[in-house]
Design a protein around this nucleic acid. Structure first.
Lengths: 255, 255
DNA sequence: CGAGATCTTGAACTAGATCAAACAACGTGG
DNA sequence: CCACGTTGTTTGATCTAGTTCAAGATCTCG
C-alpha cells in the first residue's frame, strides 16, 4: 500500500462513501485501512454516454460496476431481436453480477443517460474479500440485495393486474430513491415508457394508460418523466391488489 | 476433528459428491483435506416430510440447504394470502439464499415431496470460504447459478404468450434434470399444476390447456405428472415464440 | 424552429381469466 | 375389495383486461 496521508484517505472516503460504498463498504464498519485497500483496486469515474454499453452478452466477467451517477438497464435479447428488460440499476447499485454463474455476462448493461461508473475488477475483489472478513460479508450482503431486487421484480411480473404491477413499480422505485438519499415521492424516471413496459411484461400503451389512470385518481402526478407520488398510502394499497375505481369518499364494497 | 479414517473420508466424499457438492465443491478441484473441512460443518440427511417447511418468512438466516433428494418450492405470501411461487429447487440446488440481503428469509421453502436435506450453517460456511479460496470461488459460482435461474424465471414471466412460458418451463426443467444426471426428456414433475401456474403467473387451467395442446401437437406426452418430451427441438422453437398451430397432423418441414 | 423520438388516447379484437362441472388418481377405512 | 371422500387434473363456455393497430399530441434537442 502506498503512503496514505490523512488527506488522501479523506478524499477516498468521500468519493467512495457516496458511490458504491454507500452499500458496499461503509455500513459494515470497515476500517480506514480496509477502505484504503479496497480503494486501491477501484478504477473510478469512467464516463459513459447515454445508450453506451458497459458490457455485452457473452463478455467475460472482468469487473462489477457501480454507477456513481446515472442509471442503467440490463437487458437480454430474445431470438426475434426484442429487448427484455431484466433490471434497472440506480446509482450505487451493483451491476454485472449476472456473470457470476458462468463467468460470462448474460445481459447487456445500457446507460439510460450519461453516467459515470466505477469498475471493481472482480478477481482482485475476491482476493481482498477473502482477506477482509467484513468486506466478504458485505459483498455477500450486496449480492443478496441484488437478489432481493430480482425477487421484487418477479413479484411484479406475477401480479395479474397491470395496474398492480405499475403501482408496485412506482412504489418500489420510490423506495430505491429513498435508499440513495433522494426523495421517494418526487423523481424523474430514468427510463422510457417502453423500457418500463418491457420490464413489467406489458404493452407500452398499457403502461401509459396506467399512469394516466393513477393521475386521474390523484394518486400521482405525471409530466412526461417527472413523477410525483401524491398519495403514497393509496399507491401501496393499489400495489397490493385493492381494486381501485372508487377514489372519492365512497365506501369500500367487498363484493 | 474426529478420527478421520480413510474409509470415513471416502464415505464423506461419496455422500457429498452426489449431493450439494456436485455443484458446491467437486468441480473446483477441492482437495480431500478441504472437502473434509467443509464436510465437518454439514449436518447431513435430515428428513423432511412433504409439505413441511425448511424455513419461514422472517426466520433469521441460519443455514443454506441442499436437498439430497426431493424437490422444494420457495414461495412468498401476498397480503390476500395467495402463494406466489418464487422458485423450484431440484436436488443439488441451493436453497435459502433469499436471506442473504437482510439476514432474514423473505420466502418459505416447502417440500414438494418427502426429502432429505443437508444444512450448511451459514456463518461457518463463510469462515471456511474465507480460508479456502477455491471454496469461496465455488460459493460465488453457486450463488451465480441461483441468480441465473431467477433470470430464466423472469424471462418466462415476461414472455407474452402462455404457451411460450409453458414450453420454456418444460424445456428449462428438462435441462435442470440433465444437470443432475437425470433424463432431460422424461421426468416426473415434482410440483402440481397449480404450483406451475403460480410460478408462471397463469391460471392453472391455462397451464393444463397448454399441456394438452402440446400433447395434441405431439411435442410432449403427459400422464398426470409424468412428462415425456417427444420433440425437444420443436419445444425449444415454441419456447422462443414461433407460433405453433400449423402442422395439425404431421409433416414439419421448412424453416 | 422543425423533425424524430416519445407519449397519450381511441377503437376493435383476442388471449387468457373466471366460473362451472366432469373426471381421474389416491388413499382410508369399512 | 369396494364405496368414499379428497385432491388434483382436464375440459367447456363466457367475459374481461390488455394487446394491437392507428392516429394524434407532446416533448427533445440539434
Amino acid at each position: 500500500m502506498n503512503d496514505s496521508a490523512p488527506l488522501d484517505l479523506a478524499r477516498l472516503r468521500r468519493s467512495c462513501s457516496q458511490c458504491s460504498l454507500q452499500q458496499l463498504c461503509l455500513p459494515a464498519g470497515i476500517t480506514a485501512h480496509e477502505l484504503d485497500r479496497l480503494d486501491e483496486i477501484v478504477r473510478r469515474r469512467r464516463t459513459i454516454e447515454r445508450g453506451e454499453r458497459l458490457f455485452r452478452i457473452g463478455d467475460p466477467l472482468a469487473a462489477v460496476y457501480v454507477a456513481r451517477d446515472g442509471a442503467f438497464k440490463t437487458v437480454t435479447i430474445s431470438e426475434d431481436g426484442e429487448e427484455q428488460v431484466v433490471g434497472f440499476h440506480l446509482p450505487g447499485e451493483l451491476i454485472g453480477l449476472d456473470a457470476l454463474g458462468e463467468g460470462a455476462h448474460r445481459c447487456e448493461a445500457i446507460a439510460l443517460g450519461n453516467a459515470n461508473v466505477c469498475d471493481v475488477p472482480f478477481d482482485q475483489l475476491t482476493v481482498i474479500a477473502a482477506q477482509l472478513p467484513s468486506l466478504q460479508q458485505q459483498l455477500l450482503r450486496v449480492i443478496g440485495h441484488s437478489l432481493n431486487r430480482d425477487h421484487d421484480h418477479m413479484e411484479m411480473l406475477v401480479r395479474r393486474q397491470a395496474n398492480e404491477r405499475i403501482a408496485l413499480f412506482l412504489h418500489g422505485l420510490g423506495e430505491r430513491f429513498r435508499q440513495i438519499g433522494q426523495s421517494p415521492v418526487a423523481f424523474k424516471l430514468p427510463m422510457s415508457r417502453e423500457d418500463i413496459a418491457r420490464y413489467l411484461g406489458l404493452a407500452l400503451e398499457t403502461v401509459s394508460r396506467g399512469f394516466t389512470r393513477l393521475q386521474e385518481d390523484n394518486v400521482i402526478a405525471v409530466h412526461g418523466r417527472r413523477v410525483e407520488i401524491l398519495d403514497p398510502e393509496e399507491l401501496v394499497r393499489l400495489a397490493h391488489g385493492v381494486d381501485a375505481d372508487e377514489a372519492p369518499a365512497r365506501a369500500r364494497r367487498s363484493r
